[in-house]
Write a protein that binds this DNA or RNA. Sequence first.
DNA 1: CAAGGTGAAACTGCATGCAATTGGAGCGCT
DNA 2: AGCGCTCCAATTGCATGCAGTTTCACCTTG
Lengths: 252, 252
Amino acid sequence: MAARPTSKTSESSDKVSVICRALRRAIIEQALEPGAKLPEDSLGERFGVSRTIARHALGQLAAEGLVELRRNRIAVVATPSWQEARDAFDIRIELERLVVRQLAGKLTKAQIAELNSHVDAEDGARGGADAVSIRLATEFHILLAQMTNSPILVRYVSEVAYRCCLTLSLYSRPHSTECAINEHRAIISALAKGDERKVMELMHHHLDSVANRALVAPTPQRGRDLLDILAPYADDVASDRVVKLPKVARRG
Amino acid sequence: MAARPTSKTSESSDKVSVICRALRRAIIEQALEPGAKLPEDSLGERFGVSRTIARHALGQLAAEGLVELRRNRIAVVATPSWQEARDAFDIRIELERLVVRQLAGKLTKAQIAELNSHVDAEDGARGGADAVSIRLATEFHILLAQMTNSPILVRYVSEVAYRCCLTLSLYSRPHSTECAINEHRAIISALAKGDERKVMELMHHHLDSVANRALVAPTPQRGRDLLDILAPYADDVASDRVVKLPKVARRG
DNA sequence: CAAGGTGAAACTGCATGCAATTGGAGCGCT
DNA sequence: AGCGCTCCAATTGCATGCAGTTTCACCTTG
């Protein structure tokens, strides 16, 4: 069970994939906030490709849930509801428990070293920008998933982790990354020991506490803006077209 | 918790989405076998759209893992390895346990009726084509997922279920759908009773037995064709380009 | 007859062009 | 000012065109 052939369907060095990666990163580092507009033209211009390609990339990202695509409208960075955020974390917990269950006691020394050095990097970035810390923390989980050698699992864990990352920028308050790092270390050590139960419990607790720390409250009223609040009520109206709102402060 | 707004990012009535749905269905009903070629031109012609659209659809399906896309080559219906099939089922088990856990004891009478009538339909189709039985069985699981009102969960369960469906056509022997139907009924009844533990156990057992019945053996030799058998050996060669095979019977 | 080379057809990768839709600034009316 | 209307720039939806790559039938050669 040393090494399975790695890639197959995903992410070659297509221009499309390049743009996807760039946007994904920009989104999880919060350079692009939820709701940010992503016009095909501008994207194409910025990346030096035609609209066709930019459009295709947006399609992929929409499939991953990072981007919202509405017919005839400018694509925007996704703005998951609080409930969706919670759902994403629930799914993530199950998937990552599966990851560590498969990994417990099966890691090579080299892999453990790789994990440790990643956490060291997380540690080193503690003083820097929040965005980088978040990205590194996310990448730790993806790194774990990759060690299962299961492309499907990698894909799902990555996707759901990115989504969670996205929600952090919406609902999170300034957080201390410190304990998360310690939890990462604890997980590595339990993995090395091969204690399956323990590591699953650790991962569960880790993600659950991240979720609880991040997703502060059901936010009954302080949703992002009017549109979000009214969205459910719009179901009765013909399409998803809201009635027509008086001018109101919108974020850029 | 009556009804959350349904769609958002996914599957409007784009031409692209239409094609995706059509192909997805064709694939899971095995009208398109794994390995079948999907040239953009032909697709476009058949669905009365341009290559651009067909291409975009293929991109989406590739993101779902139903189609394999290799640069400059004709897209083909995915041919998952046995290991990937097993991985898919493992993930599916976790996801669907999550589904029924969320659903236990929370279904309305109408929903239970809907589930029952679906299983009746499965029952009715027992005499007919295998393809239809398989599709209906898969749709039962997707129906369950939809009742969670969690779009993310719906998406992942659907995707992974389709993938599993695909693997069935590769590695399955003629199977009896009968017991699967009974298991579906048992799940409904446990859901209605609200017995969370029981229903999770039932679902686990159900999927596990489907997987074990389907994924017969590591299939050391009887892979689909020469190319598959040789694929691992091709890793040493420069790219993924196999050495050059003597002419040999290929399907198609 | 098998192995290898060759050219045309098939196909993909990508850009561009055109029609249709949207959104928002500006204007007039109250 | 507030509200509604109109019209134009911005933007998307989609088809088509061209260049580069792959595939495959056919032909040549040993």
